[in-house]
Write a protein that binds this DNA or RNA. Structure first.
Lengths: 339, 339
DNA sequence: TTGTATGCGTTATCAT
DNA sequence: ATGATAACGCATACAA
């Protein structure tokens, strides 16, 4: 069943059918109705490949996700996916597992391969983005919550993020103000010497410095965004160092691993050892006891990303670099102060 | 840059280029190399729309998810998405929010609209699937972990599921054997009189019956797959009924809401009130205390679904209806026995 | 207001 | 082994 068949059935030319289907105004009302009726009756759906071939317009928006295993991202994909559907586009979701520094190449191949008209990248490392890449890419891209981008070169693409350094600084300062001097930091990968992790680590170090506390490398753990690994690493740490009084984990997923390790080490969360997570996921609120966290505005981040992308695609906006606010939510996991 | 340009640059005809690109054997080795070199140099990528138009083959696999907000599904999407990429297909992800009983229509529209060559449905209600629908659909579909399908008509489509009734029965029986007589059940939506929820409810009721315990409607709660709602509902319940000694929640997401409600009601999890969840998510293991759960084999479910679908698409398999095993994992949230 | 004819970039058939 | 050419289904410039 194609446009020719419909034309024949309706007793009109193919172009008239095409006009009706594309809501062109120059069709007599009666003709339009006649055509629509036939279309309805025969369950006709235009062949999108032919349409795309002709119009050079795929109506595809790509989402490139570095680590969908992270519920923080999968919730964002959820929100973004709804908006994409609503706006008549199709979401092409691709997960990337490539090592650092190659995300930009994956992105390029993704765009070419699927003829995308715009892309949102969730996570990933775009430190080596430059003018040549932007010129090659041609379609608007929005980097959301990415680990890194080139701060020297910010033209031609958009960025939506939080201030990771500041957020980590605030969380650490909170602990320091409460008298903690032996704080462990659980990051995802400490070897990654740049990016989101590095900036959170930076904020942590800055705060320590301001309060004249030496940074002890032994208090730095790698949880790889996994509860089980965080659990094991925290347990080891607590066996080695009796004097740890607080742990700051740079994701809630890791924080719950730390939490159980604290309990299993015979300590009480929020009393013997304070705990702060990152992201503001539901679990932090419903854990026992509730875990302090730095809340990221994930709804706002998702909505801003897709709205900005759509605007960019319709030339309704210039590229923007947006930094959204985070909020430190203090809960029972930080109840006790050390004077 | 199209196939014609490449042909011109390589000094050959378009059909030769096409043959090279599609690995046809009847090309001289030297010609093949020459063409490949030009293709490489010019970063040429064939236009997939034209290809699809010609071949009537989209290489698109659809995933229709009912409720990506559920991390259980988003983890499965993650696993499935990887396999799809590996096999050279593109994943088209669509989230459905339509009310019960219309999922089959959404599915049909999805397939037609995106010219899918196969679909996996995660969740949803397919009770009204029938011969006519299957005939209309034409491409293989796999229903994975769906709420319901037509047990009278199982031809022409595949199904991968667990035995929800049995799993719920086992969990309930475990509680009953430990002396619990006042057990609350937290389901997602009790109004949905069929489907996954109904079957879990059924298993629950069956177990009660076997142990000669009256089912009290007041002990049935609706958590809508949300921790916050489960929390509120559980708290209300515990205020009304002092004698509840166990709660069975039909998802871990809801179980953590119940868990916090228990604590906030001044009771101890696993001591005053026992708790069992469903799904086997990480959080059940790392909660404080660890929460008993019914573990679903989500990796196996994901892998089986996509492998079966690919086989079906290549006529390497017939349609199957597979029921996978679950496992009751008993943890500290069920430590205490009653008399 | 409507119909005819052309071309989008491929693949496949048919020559050569 | 290779090249010319006809389709695939659609949108649109142009003609009427």
């Amino acid at each position: 069943m194609n446009i020719k068949d419909i034309a024949k059935l309706a007793g009109v030319g193919v172009s008239t059918v095409s006009r009706v289907l594309n809501n062109h105004p120059d069709v007599k009302a009666s003709t339009r109705e006649k055509v629509l009726k036939i279309v309805e009756e025969s369950n006709y759906i235009p062949n999108s490949s032919a349409r795309i071939l002709k119009q050079n317009n795929t109506k595809n928006i790509g989402i490139l996700v570095k680590g969908m295993f992270n519920p923080f991202f999968s919730e964002m994909v959820n929100t973004i996916g709804c908006k994409i559907n609503e706006s008549g586009y199709t979401m092409i979701l691709k997960q990337s597992y490539i090592e650092d520094y190659k995300d930009i190449d994956v992105l390029k191949a993704f765009i070419n391969d699927k003829r995308l008209q715009g892309v949102i990248c969730l996570g990933g490392n775009f430190i080596d983005i430059n003018e040549q890449y932007i010129k090659d890419i041609e379609v608007p891209i929005v980097l959301t919550s990415v680990n890194n981008y080139n701060e020297e070169f910010t033209d031609g693409y958009s960025c939506i993020s939080i201030d990771n350094r500041k957020a980590a600084y605030e969380a650490t300062e909170f602990l320091l103000k409460n008298g903690h001097e032996n704080i462990a930091l659980m990051v995802a990968d400490s070897y990654s010497k740049e990016g989101l992790n590095e900036r959170r680590l930076d904020g942590f170090k800055q705060a320590l410095k301001k309060y004249n506390i030496e940074f002890d490398e032994c208090n730095l753990l790698e949880g790889h965004y996994r509860s089980d690994i965080s659990y094991t690493k925290t347990k080891e740490l607590l066996q080695r160092y009796e004097n740890i009084t607080a742990i700051f984990a740079t994701s809630d997923i890791m924080a719950i691993g730390c939490a159980k390790a604290i309990v299993d080490s015979g300590k009480e969360i929020g009393k013997n050892i304070c705990l702060i997570g990152f992201d503001g996921m539901d679990i932090s609120e419903f854990y026992n006891p509730p875990i302090s966290t730095i809340k990221q505005p994930k709804e706002l981040m998702s909505n801003s990303s897709i709205e900005l992308l759509l605007d960019l695609m319709n030339n309704k906006s210039e590229h923007k670099h947006i930094v959204l606010d985070t909020e430190l939510i203090v809960r029972e996991s930080c109840k006790i102060r050390i004077k």
